[in-house]
Design a protein around this nucleic acid. Structure first.
Length: 566
RNA sequence: UGGGGCGUGGCCAAGUGGUAAGGCGGCGGACUUUGAAUCCGUGAUUCGUAGGUUCGAAUCCUACCGCCCCAGCCA
C-alpha cells in the first residue's frame, strides 16, 4: 500500500496536493459520472484515467456514478456496457457504485429548501419564452413574470409538479439568481422540468427530473467528493455548481476542469459516433474502426495500451489534437512484448521448389517470440509447394528492393534459401506461380558460406496451411481532422473508403486453427492481429490491430515522390 | 462585439524569475534469419506579438493578435 512519492504530474494533482496541505480536504474522493446514453470511447478513457488515477495516487477512492437524470435517453443496456468497459480498462470502483437517481428524493427536499429561502420559483414560461427572456450573449435577459411568486404559491406548485398535475413543458422550477449575469448559466437556470417518462431505475415514480446543474454538484456533495474533475466545457458551469452548494450550506467539493481529448483521423463526439452507426458507415458501436472502447477492444487494443496512451497524452487545459500515431505506438509496444509470432500469408502466391522431393515434409523449429525465450518454440512443416506473400515478389524489382525477383535469392524464415528460376503466368500475363530451387546447405535459413541474403520472407506450406478471412483496418478518416472538409460538406465526407479491406483465402500456419477469440498474434512482417468474435472453427477471422512500422513503404513512397517531383 | 478558457519545435507536454525536460513523429546511422524490435545520433539563441519591470523573464506588468467554449425544459 506504499504510496509512490512522486510529485504532482499535472495542474490537477497540484491543486489536489495544495488542498490536502491546506486541509481544505482531508482525503481524496473522485468520481467518474457517465450518462448511460451511449458507449464509452477513448475520450472517456482519458477521464477515467484521470478520475481513478488521481484517487489512486493520493490513497483515495473513485466512485462510479451514473448521471441518469434524463429518462428519455438513458437505458440499462448502457449501464451494463459502461461497467464492462471500465472493468476491462482495469479500474475498480469497489463499493462506490451510485446513480444520480438514488438522490432524487434528497434533491427534491433541497429544492423545497431553496424555494422556502426564496431562491427558487416555479415558472410557467414556455420553452420559447424562456429562450426569449434569457437575452443574448451581449444583452441581459429579462425577469420572468413568475419570478416573484410567493413562497407558499411556489411550494404548492412544486408539489403539484411532482404530483403529476401538469403536462410536460407546462412549467419548470428555476433558481432565482440574476437575469443580467454575464454568465448565461446564472440567468435563472432550470432546476426541474416535467417529463412523463419511464426512468430505467425509478420507473414512473417521478415525473419531474433534475437538470444536470441541479443534480451534479449535489450528488458530488452527498458522496463527499473532494475533487470533481470534468471537462473544460463545464468551466462556465462552475459558478452555478458553487452557487447551489453555497445556498444549501452542504459539503462543497471542488470542481476542476481539463481539456477534452481529440485524436487525428477520428471523431470523438457522441453525436458523430452515433451518426456513424445509425447511417451505416460502420457496422456498430463495436466496429473495430470505432474509437469506442468496445471498438478498440475488438480491434485488438489492450487495456494496458489504452492506459499507457492516457498517461502519455498528459493533462492540460489547452485544446489539442493528439496524433493517432501515439496510440498506435502504445499498442505496438504492448503487443510487441506479449504477442506470439506466427506466419500468415495474406495474399498468397504459390511457390514450387523444383528440386525439393515430391512427398517430403520437414519440420523447422520456430521461435514463438525471438525476444522472449520463455515463450518457447513450435514446429513448422515445410514441403515442395508453399505460399509466400504476393508483394514479396517483383518481376521487375525497384531499386532497393531486396525481396524475391527472377534469378534472385531470398531466405524463407527458419527454412531454406531459395532462388527464383521461373515465373509462371496465366493467359492475361498475371503471375500465378513461381518455380524456385532451394539450397540444401542453408537448412534453417543459415548461410554457412557467409553469403549475404538481405531478404527474409514469411511463408507457409500449402498442404498444411489453414484458410482464414483477414480484415485489414485503417483510419476511419483519411483527413487528420475530419472536420476540415470543404464547405457544404461534413465530416462524413472525410471517411476513408479503404478503412476496411476484407481478405479471404489467406493462408495461415496450422497452429492458428482454433485460436481463442480475442487472442493476439504478430503475423510476422505484417502486423498485429486479433481473433475476431465472428470466427468459427471452420472459418477463423482475424482483425489487423495495427500494421508493423514499415520502412520499405516509406522508401517506396519517397522514391515515388521523387519521380513525380522530377 | 458580454462572459469564460487557452496560446512552448510537426503533434502532445514539462517549466511556477536564474538562463528551454520528456514522449510521439520525422530524418540519419548501427544491428538484424521480422525492411519489425533494439541501440545511437539529430531539431526551439527561443516560448502568439509588441513594449515594460529586473543584473537576469517562457515565467511578473501593460497592450495587442489568434484559437476554443457558452444563449437545451441535453449532459
Amino acid at each position: 500500500m506504499a504510496q509512490e512519492v512522486t510529485g504532482p504530474s499535472n495542474f490537477i494533482e497540484e491543486a489536489v496536493e495544495a488542498d490536502l496541505a491546506s486541509r481544505r480536504f482531508d482525503r481524496v474522493q473522485t468520481r467518474f459520472p457517465p450518462e448511460p446514453n451511449g458507449y464509452l470511447h477513448i475520450g472517456h478513457a482519458k477521464a477515467i484515467s484521470i478520475d481513478f488515477g488521481v484517487a489512486e495516487k493520493y490513497g483515495g477512492r473513485c466512485n462510479l456514478r451514473f448521471d441518469d437524470t434524463n429518462p428519455i435517453k438513458e437505458e440499462t443496456e448502457y449501464v451494463e456496457a459502461i461497467m464492462h468497459d471500465i472493468r476491462w480498462l482495469g479500474y475498480d470502483w469497489g463499493e462506490g457504485l451510485y446513480y444520480a437517481s438514488d438522490y432524487f428524493e434528497q434533491l427534491y427536499q433541497w429544492a423545497v429548501q431553496l424555494v422556502q429561502a426564496g431562491k427558487a420559483y416555479v415558472c410557467d414560461l414556455s420553452p420559447d419564452e424562456v429562450r426569449a427572456y434569457r437575452g443574448t450573449l451581449t444583452e441581459p435577459g429579462q425577469e420572468s413574470p413568475y419570478r416573484n411568486r410567493t413562497v407558499e404559491e411556489n411550494l404548492g406548485l412544486l408539489e403539484r409538479m411532482r404530483a403529476g398535475e401538469f403536462p410536460e413543458g407546462a412549467c419548470t422550477l428555476r433558481a432565482k439568481i440574476d437575469m443580467a449575469a454575464s454568465n448565461i448559466n446564472l440567468r435563472d437556470p432550470v432546476m426541474y422540468r416535467i417529463l412523463h417518462a419511464e426512468h430505467h431505475r425509478t420507473g414512473d415514480q417521478w415525473c419531474i427530473y433534475p437538470m444536470y446543474d441541479w443534480a451534479h454538484g449535489q450528488s458530488d456533495s452527498i458522496e463527499r467528493i473532494s475533487h470533481s474533475l470534468c471537462d473544460i466545457f463545464y468551466e462556465d458551469h462552475r459558478p452555478l455548481y458553487d452557487w447551489f452548494l453555497e445556498q444549501l450550506g452542504v459539503f462543497h467539493p471542488r470542481q476542476i476542469e481539463f481539456a477534452r481529448l481529440n485524436i487525428t483521423h477520428t471523431v470523438l463526439s457522441k453525436r458523430k459516433l452515433l451518426r456513424l452507426v445509425k447511417e451505416g458507415y460502420v457496422a456498430g458501436w463495436d466496429d473495430p474502426r470505432m474509437p469506442t472502447l468496445s471498438g478498440l477492444r475488438r480491434r485488438g487494443y489492450t487495456p494496458a495500451a489504452v492506459r499507457d496512451f492516457c498517461e502519455r497524452i498528459g493533462v492540460a487545459k489547452a485544446d489539442s489534437v493528439v496524433d493517432i500515431a501515439l496510440l498506435e505506438h502504445c499498442i505496438r509496444q504492448d503487443l510487441d512484448r506479449q504477442a506470439p509470432r506466427v506466419m500468415a500469408v495474406l495474399n498468397p502466391l504459390r511457390v514450387v521448389i523444383e528440386n525439393y522431393p515430391e512427398d517430403q515434409v520437414e519440420e523447422f523449429e520456430a521461435d514463438n517470440h525471438p525476444g522472449d525465450e520463455s515463450m518457447g518454440t513450435r514446429m513448422l512443416p515445410f514441403s515442395r509447394v508453399l505460399y509466400i506473400e504476393r508483394e514479396d515478389f517483383h518481376e521487375d524489382p525497384p531499386k532497393q528492393y531486396f525481396r524475391l525477383a527472377p534469378g534472385r535469392e531470398v531466405r524463407l524464415k527458419y527454412a531454406y534459401i531459395i532462388r527464383c528460376v521461373e515465373v509462371v503466368k496465366d493467359e492475361n500475363g498475371a503471375v500465378v506461380e513461381l518455380r524456385c530451387t532451394y539450397d540444401p546447405d542453408t537448412r534453417g535459413g543459415a548461410t554457412p558460406d557467409g553469403r549475404k541474403v538481405r531478404g527474409t520472407l514469411h511463408w507457409v506450406a500449402a498442404d498444411h496451411a489453414i484458410d482464414a478471412e483477414v480484415r485489414l483496418y485503417d483510419h476511419l478518416f483519411r483527413l487528420p481532422e475530419p472536420e476540415n472538409v470543404a464547405e457544404e460538406q461534413d465530416f462524413t465526407a472525410a471517411i476513408n473508403p479503404d478503412s476496411l479491406v476484407v481478405l479471404t483465402g489467406c493462408k495461415l500456419e496450422h497452429h492458428l486453427a482454433g485460436a481463442e477469440i480475442g487472442s493476439h498474434y504478430q503475423f510476422m512482417r505484417m502486423g498485429y492481429f486479433v481473433a475476431d468474435p465472428d470466427s468459427t472453427a471452420a472459418r477463423p477471422i482475424f482483425n489487423r490491430t495495427v500494421a508493423l512500422r514499415d520502412t520499405w513503404a516509406k522508401i517506396k513512397q519517397a522514391m515515388e515522390q521523387e519521380e513525380q517531383g522530377d
